[in-house]
Nucleic acid binder design. Structure first.
Length: 567
RNA sequence: CGGGGCGUAGCUCAGUAUGGUUAGAGUACUUGGUUUGGGACCAAGGGGCCGGAGGUUCGAGUCCUCUCGCCCCGACCA
């Protein structure tokens, strides 16, 4: 490609709404342009990067015998009614009617459609397993799109679905997909972590997220400093506490604690470690039908993890409860405890099982119980409710847990029969019995990966594309196009590189040196060959974008040097 | 969806408290010239329904009402 003929609208200034490096540099470098909230046009350079990522995904999927399909983007709402997700998805699902007044939705994900193309066509275990995927634009009417390509409303996603006759076979495929996803991210040149995760509203097990590590990531990860363990904080576990603070000495008693409400005040009042206090967090749990107040009890030194709490009661949402709501059921905010009351549904954190020497609210204003032994409680529901904190022990090796940020670029999990059962997608097993397909699902955010590469690989000048993602690997820059000998050499080099199959752009624009250099750095070509002054000595220079290193090499050695650098 | 902010040239923004020449700057663009290793300089140009609709007024970018859009914080997010 000749730069003089390319459409690469770079700008010196960044759009005012851009915050993240990926957003700023992709916009400034002329890769994408915003159309409306959460909607972006991909310009030539952006499209090339997108296609490169898609190609790598396609290659790795082919290696696993997964087959690419292309499902219609507009899907009949009926399918969504059948699966029951039309309500669950809510306003994120864009719906509209056609001229005949039939209701349709724009696909935000394609479980329903994928199941529908397989059901009634695959009807024997002999036709299984099957792994189908597509790379396609999705639409989710996000309440608040942000961060450029990171969280758009329209985005490109690879979504794959596998169908199996047994859970063993699903397990095998799941591992193969995890390995394939790992290879994809490695080939893209990304630093990432595969972490345990919550399956979300959709349900399922074995949920794993692929996280590209970057400070700007929207997800917090708990990772072990010693072993491979990593998890989204929404799902992270921890080892039993190894160091337990010294227990306070006290017999069971009701104690006057005027205006002592918070855990901090309580531990200060009694001069004890918050470990021995019981924190009560009351939330209104919202279910598909109805809602109720629930009190979650955790140790005072812990924080409630809302996703875990929500899962523990099967709620679709938790909202803060007001003091008035508490009063209505006879509880006093700041003094809620599990003893002597059955006003509210209670869930206790696993770490409070049989806890003793505890201090908890007495369900009466200005009173707490001390010396409480929780093992005296009758039937109690326990669950893991707490947020794993930095410094906690790794559940696998006992190493130390650290927090880090990640960008979710992939999510794989085992669906089982969550969709196939309600949609009645069944096959006959070896015994002639009808069974719903056992399914797995494998998603990867393709357009988000474009942004993730830049979040992880940029500097104050612009993008630094990895070799696998660069729109062009080599930029041959002519410092001054008025120098005929320079132009002649650059043209020849450009031709040679192209013949060798190396994606090259020739910067033959009538611009000054500095302007072209800034563009080269902003766009982020891995290598820029500077054809200029040095040619008088029979030399050219190679700028390595990543290290900013400039190699001066003999003009006849440029191609071989580049090939060496590309490895 | 709650709270806040902003819509003026392709882009980044002045101008709006107090209505009044022909609506500005920087940058980008065009032409000519000088330059030619880090977004250079000089000169001359083109480019605007001041988001939209209605109103007040002799007169509205500026005041009032209503709308639409975009951004930020939060809630939400397979």
């Amino acid at each position: 490609m000749r730069f003089s003929r390319a459409y690469i609208p770079t700008t010196k200034e960044s759009p005012k709404d851009a915050q993240l490096p990926s957003h700023i540099y992709l916009a400034r470098g002329g890769f994408v342009a915003q159309v409306a909230a959460g909607l972006y046009n991909f310009l030539p350079l952006g499209k090339r990067v997108l296609r490169k990522i898609e190609t790598i995904i396609n290659e790795e999927m082919a290696a696993c015998d997964a087959q690419e399909v292309d499902l219609s983007f507009v899907t009949p709402a009926e399918l969504w009614q059948e699966s029951g997700r039309i309500e669950k998805f809510g306003k994120e699902l864009l719906r509209f009617r056609d001229r005949k007044e039939n209701l349709f939705v724009l696909g935000p994900t394609h479980e329903e459609m994928m199941v529908s193309i397989v059901r009634n066509r695959v009807n024997s275990y002999k036709q299984l397993p099957l792994n189908l995927y597509q790379i396609k634009t999705k639409f989710r009417d996000e309440a608040r799109p942000r961060f450029g390509l990171m969280r758009g409303r329209e985005f490109v996603m690879k979504d794959g679905y596998s169908f199996h006759a047994s859970t063993d076979d699903l397990d095998r495929e799941f591992e193969a997909m995890e390995a394939a996803y790992k290879r994809i991210l490695e080939r893209l040149g990304l630093e990432f972590r595969i972490v345990e995760a919550d399956s979300g509203a959709i349900g399922g097990t074995g949920s794993k997220e692929l996280m590209v590590l970057a400070q700007s990531g929207e997800d917090t990860l708990a990772v072990c400093d010693t072993c491979e363990y990593g998890a989204n904080v929404e799902a992270a576990r921890r080892a039993q506490r190894s160091v337990i603070p010294e227990a306070p000495q006290a017999d069971f008693a009701r104690f006057k604690t005027p205006d002592v409400k918070s855990i901090e005040e309580l531990s200060h009042f009694f001069h004890i470690d918050p470990y021995y206090t019981l924190k009560a967090v009351v939330k209104r749990a919202v279910y598909t039908q109805g809602s109720e107040l629930v009190c979650f009890f955790i140790r005072g030194c812990d924080e409630l993890q809302e996703v875990k709490a929500r899962n523990s009661v099967g709620a679709i949402d938790l909202v803060d409860a007001s003091e008035a709501e508490l009063r209505e059921i006879g509880l006093v905010a700041g003094f809620v405890g599990p003893l002597d009351q059955d006003n509210i549904r209670m869930v206790m954190d696993n770490d409070t099982r049989n806890a003793s020497s505890m201090i908890c609210g007495a369900n009466e204003a200005d009173y707490h119980f001390v010396g409480v032994d929780l093992s005296v409680m009758g039937e109690v529901v326990f669950a893991d409710l707490v947020t794993v904190q930095e410094g906690d022990g790794c559940p696998h090796c006992g190493g130390k847990i650290l927090h880090t940020k990640g960008i979710e670029v992939g999510h794989i999990f085992k669906l089982g029969t969550v969709y196939s059962a309600p949609l009645k997608a069944e096959f006959l097993d070896e015994n002639g019995r009808s069974q719903p397909f056992i399914m797995g699902t494998y998603g990867m955010g393709v357009s988000r990966l474009v942004a993730a590469v830049i979040e992880q690989h940029h500097d104050d000048k612009g993008c630094i594309w990895t070799h696998a993602t660069a729109p062009y690997l080599v930029n041959v820059m002519i410092s001054n196009i008025k120098e005929e000998s320079h132009v002649a050499y650059a043209e020849e080099l450009y031709g040679t590189l192209q013949k060798k199959g190396i994606e090259t752009i020739l910067d033959d624009r009538k611009e000054r040196f500095g302007f072209k250099m800034s563009d080269a750095e902003l766009i982020g070509f891995p290598f820029t060959v500077i054809v200029g002054k040095e040619l008088a000595n029979g030399q050219a220079q190679i700028l390595i974008r990543k290290t900013k290193e400039i190699l001066t090499v003999d003009k006849d050695a440029v191609v071989s040097t580049l090939q060496g650098l590309m490895g």
